[in-house]
Computed example of a mutant assay.
Amino acid sequence: MSDLKVVDSHFHVWNLDTQSLPWLDGTDGTITHTYKVEDLEAEYARQAGVEFVGGVYVEVDCADHEAEDKIAYDLKAAHPKMLACMLRSDVSPWMRVPAFAAGIREPLHIDSEPKGRCLEPSFVEGLHTLAKKGLPFESCNRVNELEDAYEAFAQAPEETVILNHLGNVEALTSEWCAVMKKFATLPNLYVKVSGFPTADKQFVSELLKFTRDTFDPKKLLYASNWPVVKLYSSFDEHFQTLRDAFGDDEDFFMNNAVRAYGLTL
C-alpha cells in the first residue's frame, strides 16, 4: 500500500535569535525555542506510512510583521516543502499584501484586536477585495466572538475563509455548536481540525463526530499547528488522533488543502 500523502495546512517556524514574539512570554516555556522547517520534517519522518508533501506556513505574530515577510520569503525559497505562506496584514481595501503571499491572516484572537473588529466596514470590504484577488483569508478567532465572524463572512460569501482550530473550541457548548452549524452553510469556508487538547478522549470523540456530521468533508483540513500543538498535546498524539478518526483519507490530509489554498504540487 502506498504511503498516506500529507499537506499540513497550518504550521509555524521562528528563530528567537532574530525574531521577537512577545506572545511567547504568556506561555509556560514549552515552546520558547527556535523551530526550523527541518524540525517539522523530522516529526513527519517518524510517522509510519506517511509521505510529508509539504505545508502552509502561517504568520507567527512577531513584533515586526514586515521583517517576517522577508524571513518567510527566504524560508520558502530554501524549502520546497514550504508550499505557501499566509502572512500578516490588517484587512481593508488598502491592505498591504506581500507579492508572494498565498493569502492574509489578521489574528483576531489576540488581545490587541478590539471586540467586533471583523464587523468594521473596512474589514468586510477588505474581504471583498481579497476575493477579487483570489486570495484566501485565514481566520483565528476568540471563541466568544464566532458569531461576529459568521456575520462578517456571510457578508462576503465569495471569499474563501479558512477558520483556524475549530474556532478555538473550548467546550461543546450549545453556542459553539450553533455557530459552527452556521459556518457550515457558507459556500467558501474551510475549517482546520486542530487546536484541541487530546487528553480527554470522550471530548475528542464527541468533538470530531460533531465536526464530521456538520461540515462537508471537502471543507475539512488537516492541520498540526506545530509547534504550538505542544502547549496542549503532542505532535504524535494529535496526528494519530486524526488519523484514527479520518483513516487515510487523502481529501482530508491533502486534497482539501490543495483546493483551499490553490496549491501546485
Rank of each mutant, 00 (worst) to 15 (best):
L263G: 08
D25V: 06
A199K: 13
R212I: 14
R259Q: 14
S139Q: 12
V97P: 09
L16E: 09
L135G: 11
A102S: 15
A245V: 04
L119P: 04
A131F: 11
T129H: 15
L75G: 05
P107N: 11
T32A: 13
P121C: 04
F235G: 02
I104F: 15
Q240E: 15
K132P: 00
S122N: 12
A45L: 06
K70I: 08
P80C: 02
Q240F: 09
D213K: 00
A199I: 03
C177D: 06
K209H: 07
T241C: 14
H12M: 03
S9D: 14
H10K: 06
Q240Y: 03
A260P: 06
Q240N: 14
G26F: 12
I110Y: 13
A67S: 14
R212Q: 15
L263I: 12
I71G: 01
R117H: 09
G26V: 09
I104Q: 13
S9K: 10
E158M: 07
Y232T: 02
T18C: 10
F52E: 08
K218D: 14
K133S: 10
S174L: 02
E145C: 05
A42V: 05
L108A: 01
F253T: 02
K219P: 11
S122K: 13
L263V: 10
T160H: 07
N168T: 10
L127I: 07
D17W: 03
V50L: 05
A245N: 07
T241W: 06
N15S: 07
R243D: 09
I31M: 06
Y222F: 15
L108Q: 03
P121V: 00
L135D: 12
V91E: 08
K181Q: 14
L119W: 10
E38M: 00
M254C: 15
Y150W: 15
C140M: 07
L4W: 11
T30F: 08
D244K: 07
R117P: 01
F239C: 01
W226A: 06
L172M: 13
L4Y: 11
Y190G: 07
E125C: 00
Y57I: 02
R46I: 03
F137W: 04
M254H: 15
L172G: 06
P80L: 00
A84H: 01
P121G: 11
T160E: 04
T185M: 07
G134S: 10
F239G: 07
E59D: 09
E237G: 01
L119F: 04
L4K: 12
N15M: 01
L231G: 07
N168F: 04
W14D: 04
M86Q: 11
K133T: 02
Y44K: 02
A149N: 08
A63G: 01
E59V: 00
D3S: 08
